[in-house]
Design a protein around this nucleic acid. Sequence first.
DNA 1: CTGTTAGCGCCTTCAT
DNA 2: ATGAAGGCGCTAACAG
Lengths: 325, 325
Amino acid sequence: MREMTLQTIAEEFGVSSATVSNALSGKGRVSADLARRIRARAAEIGYAPSPPARALRTGRTGVIGLVLADLSNPLFPRYARAVDAAAEAAGYGVLIADSHGDVGAQTAALQRLVRRGADGIVVVPRRGTRVLELEVPLAVIDAPSTPGNTICADHRGGGAALAARLLALGHRSLVLVGANRDSNVQRERIGGMAAALAAAGAQARTIWLEDAPAPDFPALAREGATAFLATSDLHALTVLTALQRAGLAVPAQASVAGFDDLAFSAAVSPALTTMAQDVDAVARGALAALSARIAGRAAPPEAAVAMTLIERESTGPAPATPGNL
Amino acid sequence: MREMTLQTIAEEFGVSSATVSNALSGKGRVSADLARRIRARAAEIGYAPSPPARALRTGRTGVIGLVLADLSNPLFPRYARAVDAAAEAAGYGVLIADSHGDVGAQTAALQRLVRRGADGIVVVPRRGTRVLELEVPLAVIDAPSTPGNTICADHRGGGAALAARLLALGHRSLVLVGANRDSNVQRERIGGMAAALAAAGAQARTIWLEDAPAPDFPALAREGATAFLATSDLHALTVLTALQRAGLAVPAQASVAGFDDLAFSAAVSPALTTMAQDVDAVARGALAALSARIAGRAAPPEAAVAMTLIERESTGPAPATPGNL
DNA sequence: CTGTTAGCGCCTTCAT
DNA sequence: ATGAAGGCGCTAACAG
């Protein structure tokens, strides 16, 4: 099958390729009738413009880059899908560049994308990292406390809402579990929970897993903690299984909750209560901001997308006699 | 900062842009001295070729597509990373196209990539799906029983090896847990396990989760099953937590194992024993085959990459008195 | 051996 | 309302 170009169609109609271009783009002045016939013919033979030729001419590739810097981010597939969908809707292709490991690799990934001609880049940066300025428009998805952040879930608000729900269930002695202090996202989630708990006069103790590889969660429960709130379902799962293995009943003796509604969260027993982020909305917001910047328009202001509580089986009323097992 | 092109450098040296191109590529015939000076100058000013211009001229974009059709595939991030790394090593960029849902969407994703000019495509197809022939080279990562498969992990061999290990631990009554019958990968894993078990005269019962949403695993254990082998760590986790919640000790009273070494597998308690695939090796193989096809060379024959048993805490010797709880 | 000419497919003036 | 011309940056095919 012969490759179709504007020239091919132009010859069929005995006109110039410029006229075909005009007819197809609708920009130029072409007689309505001719334009319609040209469009019909183009659709019929499945004409598609050559991306490289167009890119060469216009200086834009129609491709954006996506950098998910933190491999440990279990939302990877959902962000990839969401960004891809939003990009597709805006007429962009999505080039990925996985950045293994450290900040240097993240920077290298960004530069690779620039070299490949990305018109703009969406970055979910590695925790604790600042994305350096580049010659291409950027949209950063991280946390409000991150400099240069473009859009993200409302981690602090989500933390506060989760804490509020546990408070309503009667919990007064809780353990907050984070993994990495240098993650703005985790710090904000913890901060939101701690603030809400403190305001209600409840006891809260925070544990960072990077400090103590294997905290003794069952012991904490025996000492009176009735709820464990982790910054990720991954860590909530760690707590849940540790408690169960020690013979504690969840949620009868202790409640457990996490964040992000990961793939396994509904599949475990008891199913995990979790604070979910609207990945699609965040991705759409990032793409809107990026498109605006690429087009030279002013980007919308920084935004935070509300999180949603998904209440399942792992949370329940605080036991009447905490610690009394 | 002015954009650098071959022409820029050519003018500095008073030669034509073709000469600079020849000097840089090493292909053409340029005096050794001039070539060296040109290369030095290019490096100095950070010259990088324009991908669209090169693509327009050569007809190749230097970009391959990646389709991870099954969102539920928890290996998504690892495949994305591995394919990206292998592609980068081969000088390719990676365009993703996420295909939501059904086979039609998978086909649409492939066609989008073709329209964007992908030189070739790596596909991890949706389960139970045949990838249609396309005008671009393809590399399919699925299972040997899938028509057109290019490379994959040795699912059957992995299944057999996992079963052999449980057999060695003394287990004689096992439950095999799969999710979807239409997945070639799952069927081969189950098949490998079942064959090894049958050959040893052990009892094996297979449960497909799509048949019964919530099988009563604790009851199965009480009836004498001493080991649960799932086709994915995700389902192994479901079994593990169900058992624990019912007060059964793992692995003292029942062993549990899965496949793929997912993110949470080492984090739960007891840590999951799992049969892992070498994602990097598979990705490299896929890229080698794809590169060959793109270059018009004969692709290497279909290959299966050995899987590796990661023995952790969730498996142990069969209890002396199974079912006697 | 050393180098240059021609043109990939598209879009944007500027003439007609 | 349409066409001719030019050139984006690069490299395969030609001259010198």
